[in-house]
């Protein structure tokens, strides 16, 4: 049984170890650690979104809401409670899970209705936090300043740990009975329920896990950035990127979001740095082309040929 588990999970561990190695060594050859940090952030967010969308079929347009909640939870812990960094970072996933619990009833919706409701929820969070009347608590539109804890190297290392953790969770979702149950549920929830799969509980667990991943990413992002405005952590561009990156790589897999986020974010920056004047044109055409010709993601090039993708 132990051997069986190992054979199922070693690819996940291998990928996680490779990611840790790559992002640990990369700063020695490439000094723009902000770019590497953001790449890891988007790998985590694409993977976190994959945990929900890839395994349950729920597409959260407002995924950034959890990210922003995590960032602000960490910021408030530092500003109001003068908490140590580790406690502030842990507050991120806890707060986003609390929000996810409150928003749990949204899971009764499906398809576009869920996506739109989730988007609206993230906007509510944004407007509450950035409201001028909340200035005394959240900093309101003035944003937050956490220069007391600013530590780019330590926060970079923490993001590596989160990349590893998220990859292992995705591998667990991919190969465990839990993940298989989720996929059965996504295909046909009625049949899944009749097969004694606890649909509501499992869906909620996937939802909470996905929220926790985004919340933790937001908390570490806040630690790394140290000065930010509400727009920066609740920007819909973050949700859009996470969705596009996950879809580009291929959802429901472990490698898909990693490849999608890694490739597209690198490309995004390469175009932005080398040909900024054509940035949106090139990037837009590329995404439209990829969605038209590879709607199942880049990994579908392999699955179409019968190759099993991890």
């Amino acid at each position: 049984m132990l051997k069986s588990n190992w054979s199922r999970f070693w690819p996940g561990m291998l990928v996680a170890a490779l990611l840790a190695l790559v992002f640990s060594v990369a700063p020695m050859g490439y000094g723009n650690t902000s770019l590497l940090f953001m790449m890891m952030t988007f790998i985590v967010l694409a993977q976190g979104l994959n945990l929900l969308y890839g395994f349950t079929g729920y597409l959260p347009f407002g995924y950034v809401g959890f990210f922003g909640t995590g960032a602000y939870a960490a910021a408030l812990m530092v500003m109001k409670l003068h908490a140590p960094v580790w406690a502030a970072v842990l507050a991120g996933p806890l707060a986003s899970m609390a929000i996810a619990l409150v928003l749990g009833p949204l899971l009764r919706l499906s398809g576009a209705y869920f996506s739109i409701a989730n988007l609206a929820a993230s906007q509510i969070l944004f407007f509450v936090i950035s409201n001028p009347h909340m200035t005394g608590i959240t900093g309101g539109p003035y944003g937050v300043k956490l220069d007391r804890i600013f530590a780019p190297t330590a926060s970079y290392a923490a993001m590596i740990v989160l990349v590893v953790l998220t990859t292992l969770i995705a591998a667990y979702f991919r190969y465990s009975r839990f993940g298989q149950g989720l996929r059965a549920m996504a295909d046909d929830p009625v049949s899944a329920e009749m097969s004694a799969i606890p649909v509501v509980r499992m869906r909620l667990m996937a939802w909470l896990t996905s929220a926790a991943v985004a919340g933790l990413a937001g908390a570490i992002y806040a630690w790394n950035l140290s000065v930010f405005y509400p727009d920066a952590v609740f920007s819909l561009q973050i949700s859009i990127f996470a969705i596009v990156f996950a879809l580009f790589g291929g959802v429901g897999t472990v490698l898909g979001p990693i490849i999608g986020a890694g490739l597209l974010y690198a490309l995004y920056n390469a175009i932005g740095i080398s040909a900024p004047q054509y940035f949106q044109l090139i990037y837009g055409v590329l995404i439209v082309g990829l969605v038209m010709f590879l709607p199942e993601g880049i990994l579908s090039l392999l699955t179409r040929r019968g190759i099993n993708v991890f």
Binding site: N32, S34, L35, G272
Partner: peptide, 19 residues
Amino acid sequence: YDDQSSTSTATTLYNQLIT
């Protein structure tokens, strides 16, 4: 570089200019 009014893009591009 063009940051497209995005703070996250601006962060990486400022770092690019420096490092």
